[in-house]
Design a protein around this nucleic acid. Structure first.
Lengths: 161, 161
DNA sequence: ACTAATTAGTTGAAAGTTGAACAATTATGA
DNA sequence: TCATAATTGTTCAACTTTCAACTAATTAGT
């Protein structure tokens, strides 16, 4: 558990990369969320709905949905209650595993996501994707694909220690 | 207010760029926050403290601090109350403008940020910066520098309409 | 089969965030 | 100068998220 070596501070190039990224990302997410406002959706709720609409039968087990939408089970549970009240989803008991539930998108939910999707995509384009050349898009994918992979490795590494 | 044109969905390259970015970013931020846990700090609080420690006299007006740390005034106000209770900052009335307050970092706060900074930088390195080549770092800075600039333009554009 | 341990999902309380309303002060401008 | 507008920062209430505790059902180990 030694920790004594001098901190390796970021050099100017590294600092610029890090700060540009973190600042732009916060502003970008803020803008994307604001753009979704008119559809009564946050990015997180949009992600839940989008995942659900891609699933066979527009239904998915709660756990899997939480996993794909990157929410804690607890958080998903709370959001589902809200979205259920809005009539966008419902929950159905699962016969194969009676601990579990299916999150099921309703027709109303389907219509809601159909209505929101074009403007959301347009927003992602305008704020980010259309700002980048094809080369830059590939660079972005490369960089963050690698980051994700490495985070996964680090997580596995930390889990066993 | 015409909106009828067919949505321009993302092509595979665009989709990959967007999804890689958004997924990696969420996981990355999650990991960085987890790494800060041991110092009783969130990224947001760290940012507040870092900005404050860079300011002359380690003090800054509330508004400016909110601006730099990218928090709403309300949110900063709440966080300050918590950090004040922890003894890391205090607030002082402002003589030049008696509506205002100075956010002032205490000695204890200074020690706290000094203690947290090396491990935070190490975390940023390990999770992101050290994963990238110099070229990739420059690409990252280029991309997101441009995104920030464009977001600012769009914001100005929207403000007048 | 019987107990342990895991897994699925929910809940309630505490903590955090948002957004509008507000008091106090300063700036603007006829 | 006077009235109006804008700015500073806080507060309250509504809402959201987190964390730990919990029930119920399934799986594993013996």
């Amino acid at each position: 558990m030694a920790k004594k070596s001098a901190p390796r501070w970021l050099n100017p190039r590294e600092m610029k990369a890090w700060r540009s990224y973190i600042i732009a990302s916060r502003r970008l997410l803020e803008a994307l969320d604001a753009d979704l406002d008119g559809h009564d959706l946050t990015m997180a709720d949009y992600e839940v709905m989008a995942q659900l609409s891609d699933a066979p039968g527009r239904r998915m087990r709660m756990s899997e949905l939480a996993e794909l939408a990157m929410l804690s089970k607890s958080r998903l549970s709370h959001r589902m209650k809200v979205m259920e009240k809005a009539g966008w989803v419902k929950r159905e008991e699962c016969v194969e595993d009676r601990r579990g539930y299916w999150a099921v998108m309703t027709d109303k939910g389907w219509k809601a996501i159909l209505a929101a999707a074009p403007s959301h995509v347009e927003s992602v384009r305008r704020r980010l994707i259309d700002q980048l050349s094809a080369k830059e898009q590939e660079a972005l994918a490369g960089i963050f694909g690698h980051v994700t992979e490495e985070l996964r490795n680090q997580f596995l590494e930390e889990s066993k220690g």
